[in-house]
Design a protein around this nucleic acid. Structure first.
Lengths: 113, 113, 113, 113
DNA sequence: GTGGTCTAGACCACC
DNA sequence: GTGGTCTAGACCACA
């Protein structure tokens, strides 16, 4: 995994994990790698993974069983879609539409619709 | 003006200024507010405005007359459109399309086309 | 049984057992479940139950007959009451009183007295 | 400031700050010490203070002005009281009442009411 | 100057 | 074994 320059690594890993969950590479209700394991896999400090896991825990996408490890939450997939969809529709889309109109780009030119 | 969480303030102000130029609220060849004035209007440190102005100067969108102030460049509008259009089509659009397909959002749902 | 976030599970189980003893659900002098049995009932690792039992053994509330199992001690109820009463009055109560006064909660509002 | 053994330092500092806000030692809308400054005052690593501040930011008790520092939120006092009151009434009080009844302690004995 | 992120390494409680 | 906390120190972007 190689990291983009300007976005925090822990968030990029978070995005990556969300993708893994959506594609069911990491299925719901199953255990995910420990912070140390994933850290060494990705060549990243375990603390950074811990930060990713805390972030995903706050979003109710994973949860911790003490002494055992982190697990993908039940319904994680639908939560991820909901979060990302909401953010896209409420925050990104309006900016996109505004920008396209300012730049004189018509949707029909760039989307096949 | 209220600022997005994760994007540098000076770039958000830059975007805002480009918009003003495109809508001709700030017409070409005319003087724009001093860093102090704009800073206090926006509730932002003048240094931050300075950084915005430097950034726009590098893009040949505004220019400085020493002792007088900053002016919108002749042809600024077409330069802005060119820069942003290129960037939008090459960098942003592909990501948008990918994301929309991942989230199952169809262009026809959100664009009137 | 669901567990509090910040208190060790083995202590929460310990509290739960004390309650069972006080209510005589688990009577004095009688055998209590094996670590395996209780562990699987509570969905918890047997090691954790073992730790609970060790803890209660140290307090002379239960005792072990090798090869047979753990038993509630004679006089267990009075020991529990003594231990917990002391701790409650000396350590917990002052904090509770301080907090209630800080938060403006009057005893008469929440206790029927 | 000296720290309790079994509670994370960053949470103890958080509690301490909440007290300071409630007593208006740190008034609403005003800047609070930088992570480095408070860290060296308390003999604690700045990262630990950062963690405290993140925690308080999540609770909307403080907020960050980029490049400037952290500020006590408007309405911080009432938010703190609300949070602590809710937690006390919903989580702690039921346990207290249960424990007191199990131990045969009557409210009238320990509260002046 | 500010916070934010990251690393390396340590220690601990808990399961 | 697991996570959780903490330190020391570094580097960076931003205001």
């Amino acid at each position: 995994m190689d990291f983009n320059e300007h976005k925090p690594i822990y968030l990029q890993i978070s995005d990556n994990i969300c993708e893994k969950i959506l594609t069911e590479e990491w299925p719901e209700d199953e255990r995910i790698p420990s912070v140390r394991e994933l850290g060494s896999n990705l060549g990243v400090n375990p603390n950074t993974i811990m930060r990713t896991y805390e972030h995903l825990e706050n979003l109710d996408i994973i949860s911790n069983k003490r002494g055992v490890g982190f697990f993908v939450e039940n319904e994680a997939k639908s939560k991820i879609v909901k979060i990302q969809r909401d953010q896209f529709l409420k925050e990104e889309l309006p900016l996109i539409i505004k920008k396209m109109s300012l730049l004189g780009i018509k949707p029909s030119e760039v989307f096949n619709c």
